[in-house]
């Protein structure tokens, strides 16, 4: 692999398969995400979108496949053994390369906003407190939360909580950020503020993978859209193709159904 490729591909997974008991949830999925790329994943619920993000963020282990961050191996397919993961020491290091934003925020309720954002970089990554605090204040300001650093999550709106969780993911300076339906737990009038934050990140060339049901948003923000159904990638390409002019009947049916709902 030459240097150009190494710097270009932030995340890649090849022939990923994952099953829960008898249920094969992901079937031979291959995805490469390049630096600065914004990829949306759409698809009906139960199609394996969350499971894909959870495999990518090491919350689930996959049975088969090879996965790399910036060319560094997370797991590698070996004959007769399936996906063999790197030792914990390596995985711990690779963890700091990605962030995940959850549908229901998963903030730590007993900590203030500031502590939620700063604790991991200080106590996990061992960065200096002053530096982390300065970074955190800057991030919170960028998220419009500069007056909230002493608030507890329960004192915030859903939109504010989600912004804190995005700040918490960003502070470790990940090279890629995954979002799992970041607006699905929010009241409709609050989704806009999160979508705006993501748009701002896109403008700053953050590499992102976003699972979403906000089709219009996906169309505007993404460089590439992946349509998943039943654990396979049915169709992918630029938004104007996949959303604007889908080729596959399943994609067409899904988009038609969505537009009827709205």
């Amino acid at each position: 692999m030459n240097n150009f490729e190494k710097s270009a591909s932030i995340f890649e997974v090849h022939h990923l398969s994952k099953r829960f008991g008898d249920l094969e949830v992901l079937k031979d999925i291959s995805v490469t995400i390049n630096k600065g790329e914004i990829v949306s994943i759409i698809g009906p619920s139960g199609s394996g979108k969350s499971t894909f993000l959870r495999c990518a963020t090491l919350l689930e282990t996959m049975e088969h496949g090879t996965m790399k961050y910036q060319g560094e191996v997370v797991c590698e397919e070996k004959d007769g053994q399936g996906a063999v993961y790197a030792p914990p020491r390596i995985l711990r290091k690779l963890r700091s390369l990605f962030g995940l934003v959850f549908q229901n925020f998963n903030l730590f309720p007993h900590w203030t906003v500031l502590k939620n954002v700063t604790d991991a970089p200080i106590s996990v990554q061992g960065r200096s407190k002053e530096e982390v605090l300065a970074d955190a204040r800057q991030l919170l300001k960028r998220m419009g939360l500069d007056t909230k650093e002493d608030a507890y999550p329960c004192q915030l709106s859903g939109g504010q909580q989600q912004r804190v969780s995005i700040a918490r993911a960003l502070i470790s300076k990940p090279v890629i950020l995954f979002f799992d339906e970041p607006t699905s737990a929010l009241d409709p009038e609050l989704t806009g503020e999160i979508l705006k934050v993501i748009k701002d990140l896109a403008a700053a060339h953050m590499t992102m993978v976003i699972v979403t049901h906000e089709i219009e948003f996906a169309r505007h923000v993404s460089d590439r859209v992946i349509f998943m159904a039943d654990g396979v990638i049915v169709e992918q390409g630029p938004p104007e193709e996949v959303i604007g002019n889908p080729k596959q009947p399943r994609t067409q049916a899904f988009l038609r159904k969505l537009s009827h709902q709205n």
Binding site: R92, R95, G99, N106, V124, S172
Partner: peptide
């Protein structure tokens, strides 16, 4: 909630850190 463990896991907390810093204080309450 399981999400507390998952968030801690993604942020890189060790099992012990997760338990003593994140889970136990909430359990005490």
């Amino acid at each position: 909630p399981i999400g507390q463990y998952e968030a801690a896991n993604v942020l890189g907390y060790s099992k012990l850190q997760t338990f003593f810093k994140i889970i136990l204080p909430q359990v005490v309450k």
